[in-house]
Design a protein around this nucleic acid. Structure first.
Lengths: 220, 220
DNA sequence: GTCTTGTGTTACTGACCGGTAACACCACAT
DNA sequence: ATGTGGTGTTACCGGTCAGTAACACAAGAC
C-alpha cells in the first residue's frame, strides 16, 4: 500500500507538502504526549512519510521542536487577531474576549495547557533553541496585554499585564494537575477583579477610590 | 577506588543506607533536569551505588518517580509545619509566612518550580503511578489553605484557597519561562490583595463593603 | 563455625533513540 | 530524451534506555 494514499489532504489531488504534514504531526504529538516522549520516527510516520524526509526539512529534532513552538506562538497571535477583529477599537473588550477564549481552552479536556510553558518545564537546558522562542513569545504576549491596558487607560498597565498572565499560567498548569472544574469561570472572575482593581481612570464614575470592589465579590 | 568512599554521609562511620541515597540522588536529578531526561543508571551512580541495588529497592523507574514525588510532597508539608510553629494560633500569619517562603523559592535561581506540577506536565499518561501522588498532594494543599482561611474567618475560604494556589502555580511556571524579576514581590502583593478582598469579617473595621481595596493598590 | 541478608560487579537483553548513507523512483522542466 | 530535485525505502551507526541474570563479597546472626 502506498503511504501517500491515506493522508489528511485538504482536497483530493493536490497534496499537502511534507514539511507542513510533518509540522502538523509534530504539533499534535509533542503537545499531547510531551516533547521528550515523542521520537522523530513516530512523527514521520504520523505525517505519512519517513525519517529521512524529516531530516531533509529540519536539521535536528531540537530545531523541529523550536519550529513547533514558533507555530504554536503564531496560533496564539491569530487568536489575538480574532479578538481584535471582534472588538475593534475596544481594548478592554479584546482582553475580555481573549480571556473568554482562554477560559474555554481551560475547560477543554484534551488541552494540556500552553505549549510554550510546557516546553519550558520540559526543556530546562538554557542552550536549547526552544528557549529563545519561548522567551520571545512571552515578551510579546506581555507587551500586547500591557498595550491594550494602556490604551484602555488603566493604571499600571504593565503590572496588570504581568498579574493577569500569572493568573492564566496558573490556571493552565492547575488544569493539568488538580483538574478543570469551574476553572474557566474562576479565571474570568479573577481576571475581571484584577482589571477592575486597576480602575477605569475616572471613566464613568466620579466617586473616588473604592469603586472596583463591587465586581470582585459577586452577590452571595 | 571504592565507590562507597566519597559519599555524603552525615557522620563518619555510620553510612546512609542506599535507599535514602538513591532517593536523594533521584530528587536532585529529577528536579533539576526533568524526569524523562534522567536515566536510572545516572541516579544510581550519583547515589554512589549501581543499577542493581536501585532495582532491589524500587520495582521500576515509575515507582521511583512516584516515591520521589511523595518525598517532595512531604517536604512541602514540613514547610507548612514550620509556618505553623512560627505563628501558632494565627492562621493568617501562617499563610503569610508560607507565602513569603514561596516568594523566596521563586526568586531562587536554581529552583525550577513545583516538583509535582512539573511532573504533571511531563507525565500526561493517566495511568502513571505519579498521577495519584500529584492529585492527592494538590487536594491536601487546597484543604490546608482553605482550613486556614476558614479559621481566620474569611469569606469563601475554599474559593480563596483555589485562587491563591492558582496564583502561586502561575508564578512558579512563569519563573521558568519568562523570568523571576520581581516575581516574589508581585506574588506577595497579589496574594495580600486576594486575602484582603475576601475581607476579615468585620474584625476591626465597622464600615461595610469596600474596605479591602486600600491594600490592593499600594500608594503610587 | 555456618548461614543469611544486603550489597557490589559485570555482562547482558531487547528495544528505542537521533541521525546518516546509499539507492530507487517519479514527476516535471527543458 | 535527459536531467534534476524532491521523495520513498532500507539498512545501518553508535549510543542509551529500562530491566535482569549470575556470581562474588562482606557483615551480622545464630
Amino acid at each position: 500500500m502506498r503511504a501517500t494514499s491515506m493522508l489528511p489532504n485538504g482536497e483530493a489531488g493536490e497534496r499537502t507538502p511534507p514539511r507542513e504534514r510533518l509540522l502538523a504531526a509534530a504539533r499534535e504529538l509533542f503537545y499531547r504526549h510531551g516533547i521528550r516522549a515523542v521520537g522523530v520516527e513516530a512523527i514521520a510516520e504520523a505525517a505519512g512519510t519517513n525519517k529521512m524526509t524529516l531530516y531533509r526539512h529540519f536539521p535536528s529534532k531540537d530545531e523541529l521542536v523550536a519550529e513547533y513552538l514558533r507555530q504554536s506562538a503564531q496560533e496564539a497571535n491569530r487568536c489575538w487577531d480574532a479578538c481584535e477583529r471582534a472588538h475593534p477599537g475596544d481594548p478592554l473588550g479584546q482582553v475580555r474576549a481573549w480571556l473568554a477564549e482562554m477560559a474555554d481552552h481551560l475547560t477543554n479536556a484534551d488541552r494540556r495547557g500552553c505549549a510554550l510553558a510546557n516546553a519550558a518545564v520540559e526543556l530546562p537546558e538554557k542552550t536549547h533553541p526552544a528557549r529563545r522562542v519561548i522567551e520571545e513569545y512571552k515578551i510579546a504576549q506581555r507587551q500586547r496585554l500591557a498595550h491594550l491596558f494602556r490604551s484602555a487607560g488603566l493604571r499600571e498597565p504593565e503590572m496588570l499585564a504581568d498579574e493577569l498572565y500569572l493568573l492564566l499560567e496558573g490556571a493552565r498548569v492547575t488544569a493539568q494537575s488538580v483538574g478543570r472544574d469551574g476553572l474557566g469561570a474562576r479565571l474570568i472572575r479573577m481576571g475581571e477583579a484584577m482589571i477592575a482593581s486597576h480602575g477605569v481612570m475616572a471613566a464613568k464614575i466620579g466617586m473616588d477610590g473604592a469603586l472596583a470592589e463591587a465586581s470582585v465579590i459577586p452577590p452571595p
